[in-house]
Nucleic acid binder design. Structure first.
Lengths: 221, 221
DNA sequence: ATATTTTTTTAGACAAATCTAAATACTATA
DNA sequence: TATAGTATTTAGATTTGTCTAAAAAAATAT
């Protein structure tokens, strides 16, 4: 039924999924090329193939979106990726900035029994170490209402539930400042000059973050 | 230094290692083709490439053997494979006949930190679920003196330490009979007619096995 | 609305890994 | 030793995924 895709095809599918999540609409050839560090011509070629396989809907010059089938397959890849991330952090003591590249490889091992057993072994986690939801075996995912930390009104407090940037550089910075998934955060002040914020972490630690950082941290109020 | 090989190249290397271990030092093109279910012409092509990369020593029409470098690389692949097998059996509750295909995929994820941490997580196991030794990070492996069960002299007892055939069919048969790695086994009688054996398992269970089965079970006396 | 710029697609080439069919080299036998 | 029979290699084709260069379509600016 759901025939196996190659590693390259899986990566394209995943990329289209992430880009259409972020922007909510049709994804352009150039966007994809940029995201996976390849040339637009290569993207065109691949989109044609994925379209033939019915996993995307593709109209020349107008961009691309996932089909129902493609969406489901993308969510399965993401499920594998995020389960492995949980495994790496919780069982193998990786730090949250080290897991991404390794999970990029592990996600392509497509063995349903493996993933099912891994899920069980990990205690059916609902979120990965970066706070992103893990799709279940049917491709459904649990979402939490979230706002950007930069949008939290002054005086309000919430819990950090996710980050929008998983680069090692960003995550290492967060470690240094003391920010982690699950931390309590209170918006104390906003500096007009540059949009930076003054915050209180876990009721006692006063920290300052830039507007850019605040826009990449998601909070549950 | 040790540049990365493709999945296909890794599989060839591993195959040459296993075939040269199981008997002669030079491995033939046809043997390899048979082992990895491909055509001799494809093998010739690949051997040329592997020879260019200095991982095998290859003389046309005379067969191949691994170079020092190739040997080391093969042992690293085998290390990854066997560590994953231990993980699958001990942590994810796979049975020993289910692990091979999955480990075949996982072994190609080449991330040194991952394997190092996995090894640690598993408690630095020295043998995989089939009793085969796991090479350490330098490619060295612990060997146990072993004899074929079919060669155990009458009246002697030993411990089952490995199997030479990891096919699901064989392993399922062993489960059915009650044979497992670590079991105590005593050679009670040998039937002249067909070479089959009468054995006592764990001091109490009388079983009979064929000559073929006995030749694929290894015992530590 | 026309011209210019940007984006996207096509055309043609290449490397990896495979295949079939044909040629060549070893081996065994009469 | 000549020859029939395997084993192995080469030649040429195919598929997948990529690339560069050039053409075509869409977007933007004048």
């Amino acid at each position: 039924m759901m025939k196996k895709l190659s590693k390259a095809e899986e990566n394209y599918l995943k990329t289209v999924y992430h880009l259409s999540e972020a922007g909510k609409k049709n994804v352009s050839t150039n966007e994809i090329a940029l995201a996976i560090n390849t040339k637009p011509a290569s993207v065109s070629d691949m989109l044609k193939k994925l379209s033939d396989k019915q996993v995307i809907s593709y109209i020349k010059y107008y961009g691309v979106s996932l089909s129902e089938l493609g969406s489901k397959m993308a969510l399965h890849i993401i499920r594998r990726h995020r389960l492995w991330e949980v495994f790496l952090v919780e069982k193998l003591n990786f730090s949250w900035d080290e897991v991404h590249e390794v999970a990029e490889e592990l996600e392509h091992v497509n063995a349903p029994l493996l993933i099912q057993r891994l899920d069980e072994f990990l205690g059916y986690p609902k979120f990965d170490p970066h706070g992103d939801p893990i799709p279940d075996e049917f491709g459904d995912l649990k979402t939490r209402p979230r706002v950007k930390l930069s949008d939290v009104p002054l005086g309000n407090a919430g819990k950090i539930v996710a980050v929008n940037d998983s680069s090692a550089a960003f995550l290492k910075y967060l470690d240094k400042v003391g920010i982690y998934i699950g931390a309590k955060i209170e918006a104390v002040d906003k500096i007009e000059f540059d949009g930076s914020q003054e915050l209180v972490l876990d009721n006692h630690k006063k920290i300052f973050i830039s507007k850019e950082v605040g826009a990449n941290i998601m909070v549950l109020l």
